[in-house]
C-alpha cells in the first residue's frame, strides 16, 4: 500500500474499491451504494466530492467498448527527434482522436492512443498525423488480449 493510500480512511477505501465495480442504474444509486457500504447518501456524496477534489478520483464514468459501438482504437508510436519533441507533441495532442500521450525513454519516444467513433476513419487519422508531423507513425493494434485490469484496489 502506498503512503497516499494509508492516508485514506477505511470508508474512503471501501468507497473507491466498491464504486470501481460499477454504479447501479436506478433512481437513487448513491443511496443504494451507501446502504451497502454502511453509510448514508449525504456522507457518500460528500466523500466522493472530497476524493475527487483531492485528485484521487477523476470522475464516475463509462469505459466504453469502442469496437462494440462501431469505433476503433489503437496504440501508436513515433520516433521523434529530440529537438522537435515539444513541437510534435503539440501537433499530435491537437488531434481530438488522440486520447492519451506518453513520453517514454526509448527511440520510440512518443506513445499515444487513437480512438475513433468510426473504425473506417482510423487509417485516415494515422495518415493525417504522419502528414502533420512528417514522421512515420507506427501502428500497434491489439491482436490478442491476455489480460486487462479494470480495477485498482486501494
Amino acid at each position: 500500500m502506498t503512503a497516499a493510500m494509508q492516508e485514506l480512511s477505511a470508508l474512503d477505501r471501501s468507497i473507491i474499491n466498491r464504486l470501481q465495480d460499477g454504479i447501479p442504474v436506478c433512481a437513487a444509486p448513491y443511496a443504494e451504494l451507501a446502504a451497502e457500504l454502511g453509510t448514508d447518501e449525504t456522507t457518500l456524496l460528500q466523500r466522493l466530492r472530497a476524493l475527487k477534489g483531492a485528485g484521487y478520483l477523476s470522475r464516475i464514468g463509462p469505459m466504453y467498448n469502442v469496437e462494440r459501438m462501431g469505433g476503433a482504437f489503437t496504440l501508436a508510436a513515433l520516433r521523434v527527434p529530440e529537438a522537435r519533441f515539444d513541437e510534435v507533441a503539440g501537433i499530435v495532442n491537437a488531434f481530438p482522436e488522440v486520447a492519451h500521450n506518453y513520453r517514454r525513454d526509448h527511440a520510440f519516444n512518443m506513445w499515444f492512443v487513437v480512438a475513433v467513433a468510426d473504425a473506417e476513419a482510423m487509417d485516415s487519422v494515422l495518415s493525417r498525423i504522419k502528414a502533420a508531423t512528417g514522421l512515420e507513425v507506427y501502428n500497434f493494434p491489439k491482436q490478442e488480449e491476455f489480460y486487462l485490469r479494470l480495477k485498482f484496489d486501494v
Binding site: G71, A99, Y102, A117, F152
Partner: peptide, 30 residues
C-alpha cells in the same frame, strides 16, 4: 513513462489501451 501529455481528452476514454489501472485506463498507457 517520463511525462503524460494528454489524458483522455478524446471523445472516448477506452478501456483497454492504456494504462491507468483502472484508469488504469486513463493513464494507462495504452
Amino acid at each position: 513513462s517520463r511525462r503524460r501529455f494528454k489524458q483522455c481528452g478524446a471523445r472516448y476514454c477506452t478501456a483497454g489501451e492504456t494504462v491507468e489501472p483502472a484508469r488504469t485506463h486513463e493513464e494507462a498507457t495504452a
